[in-house]
């Protein structure tokens, strides 16, 4: 397992909180389906593993990634946008396949559970996932 945690400087975090409070006095996000307050947008976590399953579903698509931890294989759930939103970004249900290597960056869950909000993903060699040619 390879995980890199990138934390922002404490001062930067304080400033961002101040900006958010100034803008409306509310906490964090909400979108078409649910709030994103459950994710820590200040942290990015890189997961290297294999695709167990790609769920092309509403209201969110999910990548289930198996990551080999010190304790053995651990399954992570990576939440993406809706099929409609992925479609607009050029993705299709056939773009990911079970068993293939993947490097995916997420904003992790605040509660420490094995899940996160999708930020980006590449093949193990760093090349982007692209729609198979017709």
């Amino acid at each position: 397992m390879r995980m890199r945690t990138q934390r922002s400087l404490q001062d930067g975090r304080r400033m961002r909180r101040l900006v958010l409070l100034t803008l409306g006095g509310f906490a964090s996000a909400a979108h078409a389906h649910h709030s994103s307050a459950m994710f820590d947008a200040q942290q990015s976590l890189t997961l290297s593993g294999t695709v167990k399953q790609f769920q092309w579903s509403n209201p969110h698509c999910w990548i289930q990634v198996t990551v080999n931890d010190k304790t053995g294989p651990v399954e992570w759930s990576v939440e993406m946008g809706s099929p409609s939103q992925l479609f607009r970004s050029g993705w299709r249900p056939t773009i990911l396949h079970a068993g293939e290597a993947i490097v995916v960056v997420v904003h992790p869950m605040r509660d420490g559970s094995k899940g996160g909000q999708f930020v980006s993903a590449t093949h193990a060699d760093g090349t982007p996932f692209e729609r198979p040619s017709k």
Partner: peptide, 8 residues
């Protein structure tokens, strides 16, 4: 709401 793969 111009979003990418994350839906955000």
């Amino acid at each position: 709401w111009q979003v990418g793969l994350s839906g955000r």
